[in-house]
């Protein structure tokens, strides 16, 4: 065996298997998707005609449902991101300093985040369909007796409730890590200068937490824009397809309507949207981090 070849073997051993798996699961499908997005293939037949940008044109001229799904996902995503982070930060502020039971409370608030979207969706389906009604009969609250998953407005609300309930614990964990990492001298100094707890929290602690907030925002934006499981379990995209997320729309177009080429084009648009939004967010919070340091 030549010396050069012998030297190459460890490279192949350490990098090879990972590269093969990564190519198989990510790179090859990504490239193949770009190709199919330019065809009219239905996913089954043996012929696929090259149609250029026709699928993309149909998407952007509103001939398909994808734009509606994108609008729904972005709007509900923004509400979810906002509420998840507000609730998560509030919980972190509450549980930052230890008191009796605070560790248990942290674990409880984080619990929904360790469970799957499908199962969580069905747990809440039971709550919205059966438990709300039972509770409404006792309390005589009209809002509980509504058909929660049956009208668009309440179905939106239901999706928001479940997503925030599932995501807040994650933000809480990250923000607790952020708050406990702030040097005590900093907050002490502000207190000596006469700042109250509220002022200390917003003007002294929060600016220190910006890198962590970046993580929370990145995570919550990515998670809510990729919404799929909760969507399937809770509303199935209904009523009248009004709560269909982008991921669900792609899945339906490919496997239910057999518009495989079109679905691939939608998948590419979906990627560009996620990429643009997360890149923009990272740029903006990165700028804020620089400004504060």
């Amino acid at each position: 065996m030549s010396k050069k070849l012998k030297k190459a073997i460890p490279h192949v051993v350490f990098l090879g298997p990972a590269f093969v798996l990564f190519s198989l699961a990510v790179i090859i499908p990504f490239v193949v998707s770009i190709y199919y997005s330019l065809t009219d293939w239905n996913g089954i037949s043996s012929t696929a005609n090259f149609v250029g940008l026709k699928n993309y044109i149909s998407i952007f001229t509103g001939k398909t449902q994808f734009l509606a799904a994108a609008k729904f996902t972005v709007l509900i995503g923004l509400v979810i991101v906002l509420l998840t982070n507000i609730l998560g930060i509030a919980l972190a502020a509450l549980l930052e300093k230890k008191f009796r039971g605070s560790d248990l409370f942290r674990a409880l608030f984080f619990l929904p985040n360790t469970m799957g979207g499908v199962v969580m969706g069905y747990i809440w389906r039971f709550i919205f369909i059966a438990a709300f009604g039972a509770l409404g009969d006792i309390l005589k609250w009209k809002v509980l007796q509504l058909p929660w998953l049956g009208t668009p407005g309440t179905a939106y609300a239901a999706l928001i409730i479940v997503s925030v309930w599932q995501g807040a614990g994650y933000v809480m964990i990250i923000m607790i890590a952020a708050l406990t990492g702030i040097p005590a001298e900093l907050t002490e100094a502000a207190r000596v200068d006469g700042a109250g707890s509220w002022k200390v929290f917003w003007s002294v602690k929060m600016p220190q937490c910006v890198p962590y907030l970046t993580v929370c925002l990145f995570w919550s934006i990515a998670t809510s824009f990729k919404m799929f499981d909760v969507n399937v379990a809770l509303t199935k995209g209904g009523p009248y397809g009004m709560t269909t997320s982008m991921a669900l729309q792609i899945y339906n177009d490919a496997f239910t309507s057999n518009r495989y080429g079109l679905a691939n084009a939608e998948a590419m648009v979906f990627f560009v949207i996620i990429f643009a939004v997360t890149a923009l967010q990272l740029y903006l919070t990165g700028r804020e981090e620089k400004r504060l340091t």
């Binding site: 990510v26 499908p29 193949v32 998707s33 998948a267 590419m268 979906f270 990627f271």
Partner: peptide, 17 residues
């Protein structure tokens, strides 16, 4: 780069692959 690719983008071709 791949960290920004959502699974729904590659899932259709992944099944075929």
């Amino acid at each position: 780069g791949s960290l920004l690719i959502p699974f729904a983008t590659v899932m259709l071709s992944l099944v075929k692959t």
